[in-house]
Simulated scan of single mutants.
Amino acid sequence: MLGFLFRRSLLALFVVFAISVITFVLSHVAVDPATGIAGDSATDADLAAIRVQYGFDQPLMTQYAGYLADLARGDLGRSYLSGEPVGQIIAERVPATALLACLSLLFALGIAIPLGVLAALHANSWLDRMALTLAVVGQAVPNFWAGLLLILLFGIKLGWLPISGSDSLAHFILPAITLGSFAMPALMRLVRAGMIEVLEADYIRTARAMGLGEGQILFKYALRNAVLPVISLTAVQFGFMLGGSIVVESIFAVQGVGYLAWQSMSRSDMPVIQAIVLLISMIYILLTLFADLANAALDPRIRSKA
């Protein structure tokens, strides 16, 4: 297990390093940082002075070495617009995004697992077809369109829920449903497929022949083995929710990291964008690593193959 953890950790560190390189290069090549600071109305003399002040006139490798040195000290730089430390700006927005992602994942799993199990137990029935239809519709509907429909129905027409902001838990209900509804179909289909495969396995037939109850067979044996691939997909979907929250947070004006990313992109505040991309990538990689470790703990065959 320690060897498995060591190999996966090395791979994760390499991926983080590669992402930092790509993000840094793109942020300095796609947009002129000096223009982002001075604005489009700045003169050539102003741009030249800013490049010297911030070190943009130095070779890209020299700038990247300084960026890594700052990262090692926990310094993510300062916002071009406000001058505040980027780490402080992002830290103020993380709780809202984390709460939104957790609620969205709970909503997705709360529907996907029971519906997937029921669809597998009644394969090829009307319940199974209804579940698959719901999965197709949920996967096809764009987040922004689903969010607008929820706003019109529950926020404006019925007036049950707030449609913008992040002041209370009620403000997160509609965004969580919007974000979770896109992750739910893939999880549900995977639970269904895994349960159908497991329920046809020899050890399940043996358990039934030994007289074990259906509930014990379902929850103690079948669901435990069927849920292994779901763990990996859940980690991926949670990372997607953190990154995909940009659209949802912008629609509902949730003061999270996603909304901050949209604001920073519209204003070319590259240090903030760069830090957000790196943060979401690191969280995504850590989630994938934890999912691999959880799968390896549940299934020793994975450790032996890795």
Rank of each mutant, 00 (worst) to 15 (best):
L2R: 14
G3W: 09
F6I: 15
R7F: 08
S9A: 15
A12G: 02
F14G: 13
F17N: 06
V29F: 11
G39C: 10
T43C: 12
D46L: 09
D46F: 00
R51F: 00
Q58N: 12
L60G: 10
Q63C: 05
Q63K: 03
Y64V: 04
G66V: 08
D70K: 13
R73M: 08
G74Q: 00
D75H: 03
S79P: 13
Y80W: 10
G87K: 01
Q88L: 00
E92H: 02
P95N: 06
A101E: 07
F107C: 04
F107T: 09
A108I: 00
G116V: 11
A120Q: 07
A120E: 01
D128G: 09
M130V: 15
Q139D: 01
V141D: 03
F144N: 07
F144S: 02
G147E: 00
L152S: 12
L153D: 12
S168L: 08
F172Y: 15
A176F: 11
L179M: 10
P185V: 08
A186V: 13
M195W: 09
M195Q: 10
D202L: 05
Y203A: 04
T206D: 05
A209G: 11
A209N: 10
G211H: 06
E214R: 14
L218C: 09
F219E: 05
F219G: 02
K220Y: 04
A222K: 02
I231H: 05
I231L: 13
T234E: 05
A235W: 04
Q237G: 10
G239Y: 01
F240D: 11
S250V: 00
S250I: 03
A253Q: 13
V257Q: 07
Q263F: 00
M265R: 13
P271T: 04
P271W: 03
V277G: 08
L279T: 02
S281K: 08
M282G: 14
L286P: 03
L289T: 06
D292P: 06
I302V: 15
A306C: 01
